[in-house]
Amino acid sequence: MTRTSAEKTGFWDRAATWKALLLVVVYLVFYLAVGRLIGMVFDSEIDGDNVVGSAASIFFALVLPIAIGAVALLLFAIKVGWLRAIFGPQPIGGRRWMWIAPLLVLAAIVAHVAGTDWDAWNGQEIVALAFLGLCVGLAEELATRGLTVKILRDAGHSERYVAVVSSLMFALMHTVNLIAGMSLRTVLATVVYTFAFGMCMYLTMRVTGTIWAAIVLHGLTDPTTILTTGGLDEAVVSQGGGATVAAALVTVVLIAFGFLAIFLVRGKVGDPEATRATTA
């Protein structure tokens, strides 16, 4: 007998926090496996000493693995029937104070663009980094602010719980950099930053009413950070050098605001206030 669609997706319909964690872990394992395979096949194209040293290295080492990961996440969302819920309007409104989050992220992006030594990059490298930003924004936001947030909301949790846990999962995703040989100090700094950044992306999604705003801002953050500092997560501990002072200051404020927001987030999907428009 052929199973119905509901029977096929029943496991994911019964939401729980551990299932959100399971999804993130499976995605990370898949992403790392794909990256390892691509690295073996296209080893000659990847600059092991400076992964962003050429357009080919950027594409094969960074873009292609995350692009395949994004496609896998999209296929999963389609299979379980969550695509419309994730990319459609948010089921709970935001508050005006939440606009601070996207404004801080945008300010950091502008500061990074202003602080970039454009002569240090060629056109192909810039295009490759732009494509990387698109893929990273889609994959990581879909995994955390999309799939993870939906599972946590479906499990009946408050929005504070949803914001904190989804941001924590986003931050812990970056601990895999230890496997790549990144120093523990840098990874710990990255976890702190990415948690706060995750909170800002959650708030962006809430206040704009759509995950697309978070995808766009996230997609602009990574390539502009790399262009300014010459590295991705290393930028968290190196902005006092290559990046502008303004970008470093905005990053500090963003981190502080991200942690402060833990105590400010209110609401729960399903409450009477959930359908209200953005208010003070």
Rank of each mutant, 00 (worst) to 15 (best):
A256I: 14
T190G: 15
A114M: 14
V187Y: 05
I46S: 08
R185K: 10
G209P: 05
V110E: 06
Y202M: 12
I151F: 00
Y202I: 09
A55I: 11
A214S: 14
A72F: 14
T221L: 14
W82M: 06
G35I: 03
S167D: 06
G242A: 13
A155E: 10
I68K: 00
V164P: 02
K8V: 15
K79R: 15
V162Y: 01
W99I: 09
A85G: 08
A277I: 04
A56S: 15
M169F: 15
V52G: 00
A274T: 12
A277Q: 10
M173V: 13
L73Q: 12
D47I: 07
A246N: 01
L75E: 05
R14Q: 15
R160E: 02
L138S: 00
G270H: 07
L22V: 11
S183I: 00
Q239K: 12
S44T: 12
E7I: 02
F263E: 00
A120P: 01
L227M: 14
L138C: 03
F11M: 08
A248G: 06
A108C: 03
I100M: 12
V29R: 07
A247G: 06
E273W: 03
V136M: 03
T244L: 08
A274I: 04
L104T: 08
P65C: 06
V253L: 13
I211A: 09
F170N: 07
G81R: 04
V52K: 10
M173D: 03
W12H: 04
E45V: 12
A20G: 14
T2R: 14
P89R: 08
V52P: 00
D43N: 13
A139Y: 00
R153Y: 04
G53A: 11
F131W: 08
I211C: 04
T278V: 15
V113K: 04
L249D: 01
Y31K: 06
G230P: 06
E140I: 05
W18Q: 12
G137R: 06
K79W: 14
A61Y: 11
L104R: 05
F59D: 01
Q124I: 00
L37D: 03
G198S: 02
A130V: 14
T175L: 13
M201G: 09
G241P: 02
L254A: 13
M201Q: 11
G123E: 06
T116H: 04
T210G: 04
V80W: 07
L220W: 03
F257Q: 01
E273N: 05
N122S: 10
A196S: 10
S57V: 08
A61D: 08
V25N: 04
D49V: 11
A214L: 06
A107I: 00
A85L: 09
W99K: 03
T278K: 03
V80H: 01
S5R: 15
R84H: 13
G241D: 15
L203E: 07
G198R: 00
L64V: 02
G133K: 10
